[in-house]
């Protein structure tokens, strides 16, 4: 089960469509706070999280997620329109597995997800 957290319905829809097509179950959240709650409530295998979101941003959510028992090791992809060294460094500190630049190619995202889930297993 993969949790997709993004305030943009378009992006959530895109991510969901391509992951579902690849056979994954997808749950969605529109901000970090809801995302964190859903991550706690559901047995998720992985999360794909946007950076800029209202209420609670992606990095904040990531940091909180890492302190939830049982959720420390879950792979997390960070979605971002503009990647920067600073962002990646911060992302890593908060425990991001990798980041994916928007707009992404669906097959590339699926490949990355497959790879990371295979490693996690």
């Amino acid at each position: 089960m993969i949790l997709v957290v993004d305030d943009s319905t378009t992006i959530r829809h895109q991510v969901r469509t391509c992951l579902q097509a690849a056979g994954y179950t997808v749950i969605e959240a529109e901000n970090g706070a809801i995302g964190l709650q859903k991550a706690k409530d559901h047995p998720i295998d992985m999360a794909i999280v946007d950076i800029n979101m209202p209420v609670m941003d992606g990095l904040e959510m990531l940091a909180s997620l890492r302190s939830v028992p049982g959720k420390q090791g879950i792979p997390v992809f960070v979605l971002t329109t503009e990647s920067s060294k600073d962002l990646v460094t911060r992302g890593k500190r908060y425990g991001a597995t990798a980041w994916i630049v928007k707009p992404f190619k669906p097959d590339v995202l699926v490949k990355g997800v497959k790879h990371v889930l295979a490693r996690a297993a």
Binding site: E82, S83, S84, K85, D86, L87, V88, W99, V101
Partner: peptide
């Protein structure tokens, strides 16, 4: 920045 991040 984007290059360095991707390179890393």
């Amino acid at each position: 920045d984007a290059f360095d991040a991707a390179f890393e």
